[in-house]
């Protein structure tokens, strides 16, 4: 995954989003560049300075700095939207070996481009194709949430897996967004504190 999936917002100034490819990312707000350094450190290069000798920070330090700038939601926003590709698991198929069922895997349908949006109560997918139907899920009806490689997956009220991939945005941001909005929705509805988000949402 590219570095911008970890640093979706600038840990230095809070500018959102951070852009980049591969092991490099750049903030258009303050001009800071980020690149993978030695081992698992990230070199933080202030604008106008050469990379050599720039300070390195750990992923944990960067995550804490992003959280310090308000976490997954850009400043002043109470909802969020991003381009996404949706795939739905229409069926579950058995995987057999030597005549025995080892387990089941899902058959994901064709990807459908659109915009995924979240607000305090709802997750909504609006397909780009004009004939596409808008799908909407009440947050309180979602059964599970998880990230899988570069995608975020939710289980809808019927138990169907719906997967969203983001051509530009960070799946880590979306997982955090879903967690934050779900926690708030559960609290408002008096359903208690969420203990875990998968394989199903469990509350205390």
């Amino acid at each position: 995954m590219p570095l911008r999936h970890l640093i979706y917002r600038c840990p230095e100034c809070g500018h959102d989003p951070v852009l980049g490819e591969g092991d490099r990312a750049h903030c258009d707000g303050c001009g800071t560049s980020f690149e993978r350094g030695e081992r698992s450190l990230v070199r933080v290069i202030p604008a106008g300075t050469p990379p050599h000798g720039a300070p390195c920070r750990t992923a944990r330090e960067l995550i804490e700095a992003i959280d310090g700038h308000g976490g997954p939601l850009p400043p002043g926003r109470d909802g969020y939207a991003a381009d996404a590709l949706r795939r739905t698991a229409s069926r579950h198929r058995p995987l057999k070996r030597r005549g025995r069922v080892l387990g089941f895997y899902e058959a994901l349908g064709a990807p459908e481009a659109g915009v995924l949006a979240i607000d305090a109560d709802t997750l909504r997918f609006r397909p780009t194709a004009t004939e596409g139907e808008v799908s909407e899920w009440r947050l309180l009806d979602l059964r599970a949430v998880q990230t899988s490689s570069a995608a975020v997956q939710v289980t809808d009220p019927r138990g169907t897996l719906v997967q969203f991939q983001f051509p530009v945005d960070s799946p880590r941001r979306w997982e955090q967004l879903l967690h934050r909005f779900l926690r708030a929705a559960y609290q408002r509805a008096g359903r208690g504190e969420i203990l875990e988000f998968q394989p199903r949402i469990v509350t205390r």
Binding site: H92, L95, R97, L102, G103, F104, Y105, E106, L108, R143, A144, Q146, S148, S149, Q153, V154, T155, G159, L161, Q198, P199, R200
Partner: peptide, 26 residues
């Protein structure tokens, strides 16, 4: 379970000891 999306992985992974788990449901 999403690792088993392609026919190649469905052939290979069980031969390497893997068996699927659907993490988004019990």
């Amino acid at each position: 379970s999403t690792q088993f999306a392609s026919p190649l992985m469905r052939w290979l992974v069980p031969r390497l000891g893997g068996f699927p788990t659907r993490r988004y449901q019990v």
